[in-house]
């Protein structure tokens, strides 16, 4: 079973993502802030990471750079309600594999996760 790390501070959104990804057959580890997310990355191995951008303690960009310094191959999808060009470019420059702007379709997310895991 593929392991997915979900880092999202909004409780309800995190649980919804968890529900959807579990339904798709993944083992999901939820984290409520950037610090927890970075700890999870340091202590475990994941097949994919899904992170929000605006997070308490450490933001999503810090999570991206941490993940890429630990494991370059692990794909990461950034979820954010900021669609500004420079922010998107920053995320990709740090190594993000995909960027989705909120509101996003859970079905679309599901397909993107599948595509990245099958690469």
């Amino acid at each position: 079973m593929k392991k997915v790390l979900v880092i999202e501070d909004e409780d309800l959104v995190r649980k919804s993502l968890e529900f959807r990804l579990k339904k798709d057959g993944y083992q999901v580890t939820p984290c409520a802030d950037g610090r927890q997310g970075i700890q999870a990355i340091e202590n475990g191995t994941f097949d994919l990471v899904l992170t929000d951008l605006m997070l308490p303690y450490n933001n999503g960009l810090e999570v991206v750079s941490k993940l890429k310094s630990v494991s370059k191959e692990t794909p990461i999808i950034v979820l954010s309600n900021i669609g500004l060009e420079h922010v998107v470019l920053d995320a990709f420059n740090l190594g993000a594999d995909d960027y989705m702007t909120k509101p996003f379709s859970p079905n679309e997310l599901s397909v993107r996760v599948k595509r990245l895991l099958n690469k």
Binding site: E10, L12, V13, S16, N81, K102, P103, F104, S105, P106, N107, E108
Partner: peptide, 8 residues
Amino acid sequence: LLHKNFAG
């Protein structure tokens, strides 16, 4: 809250 975050 969910409607703000999810589309489709």
